[in-house]
Design a protein around this nucleic acid. Structure first.
Lengths: 217, 217
DNA sequence: CGGTTAATTGACCCACTTCAAGCGCGGTGG
DNA sequence: CCACCGCGCTTGAAGTGGGTCAATTAACCG
């Protein structure tokens, strides 16, 4: 889209959008990994979404105005932005485009519901397996998987745990269990699926919620 | 809106929309309480949203087509529906209306993020306090609070626990603790806030995420 | 090759679960 | 009008998944 600003690079670890701010533009991840997160006063931190290349991280700031959470770069990220004014013009001219953007935020919400289901009801092993299935599926669809069973997962176990709502110590034990079961391996930023069916069944993963099928909208 | 169908009544406990279905209309709660939920194969169940009079429970089915979760009536509910075709016509004619509906789904998502933060990081006491603050605030805004500190909360402790991701036994103990602290009381469907500041501070409740302020959209 | 950060492992702890037994209370029928 | 029933709430005792704390090892990096 010609209305994208020239891309810029954000260093790993730094915030892209801050909670409480009122963005004037929407941010698109061109490359790298980012997360949305919120923290409590004493530092307990919850990641609410993981974003890959091709994702808008703050589309909701267009209708909602105030950010209720922050977005941070996990790896170095290349980002590009679209001014809200441009989004407004384009979407008012084209209802279909508005529906598509709306839909993107709804897929984020559907993912969020799965995370809540995982956090509330799944064991940490099931929850981790589900997140792995989700990320692998999204990366395959986005053409980001290295091969049929490998993909980059450049998170620390701490960051992975922030998404699951468990400690890094327990992430280590959980991944160890997945290794023992020969379901999954993950070392130095590279992950491989060893047994997709095993993971899928353990997690009760059903990709419907990702709305991958082409449908008239 | 004249495009609403005549309302009908759904009995407490029955499903309003089923997971996997493809609704042809959007459902509005006219009176009563409803919830969105998902369940795992063995019956573990997570509530993903609580809806009151005035809420659309499945607006997302308009852009997304397939329901990734179910909606159930908690109390007897009066509901009304708007055909997707009507929503389509009206929103294509009026971008502002589309943005407003989009915004409603985004507020649901913001609530969901708070629930995830609660489920992942807050203790059950803090989490319960936060949910109480949220519901009371929403009911006040909707004119549904009985008085300045009372409101109807017609859920069983089981249902309340399904929203928090804890067992009904632990809900009982948690509410007991809030009673001991003189923060909150809840008996036979009626709840009262005894110490708003206490609850708010315990929960770190900040209503910004509910987007209550009027803003140009 | 030393210095730093991330992952692993072990021992102990605790918030919440499970199981099970009372209890209160509204509803119903005799 | 009251005995009885059933369901939801409460309470206690015991179990457990994941947390905390701390020491060790492995990976990375200049």
């Amino acid at each position: 889209m010609s209305s994208l600003t020239p891309s810029r690079i954000v260093a790993a670890g730094s915030d892209i959008v801050r909670q409480g701010s009122r963005p004037k533009e929407c941010t698109l991840i061109v490359s790298g990994w980012a997360c949305r997160y919120s923290a409590l006063a004493d530092g307990r931190r919850q990641t609410m979404a993981l974003h890959l290349a091709g994702d808008f991280v703050d589309l909701h700031s267009f209708p909602l105005k105030v950010m209720d959470h922050s977005v941070a770069a996990i790896t170095d990220c290349t980002i590009s932005t679209v001014p809200h004014d441009t989004v407004r013009q384009f979407t008012e001219a084209d209802p279909h485009l508005m529906r598509m953007l709306w839909m993107l935020t709804l897929v984020d919400a559907a993912i969020l519901r799965q995370w809540l289901l995982g956090s509330g009801q799944r064991s940490s092993l099931e929850h981790a397996a589900h997140l792995i299935c989700e990320l692998f599926t999204r990366m395959q669809v986005g053409g980001l998987a290295t091969s049929g069973r490998e993909f980059e997962l450049p998170l620390s176990q701490q960051e992975f745990g922030d998404a699951l709502g468990i400690t890094s110590v327990h992430v280590s034990r959980t991944i160890a269990e997945l290794r023992v079961r020969q379901f999954f391996n993950w070392r130095s930023g590279m992950a491989q699926i060893l047994d997709w069916d095993g993971l899928r069944d353990l997690a009760e993963f059903d990709p419907t919620y990702l709305s991958l099928r082409d449908e008239p909208r």
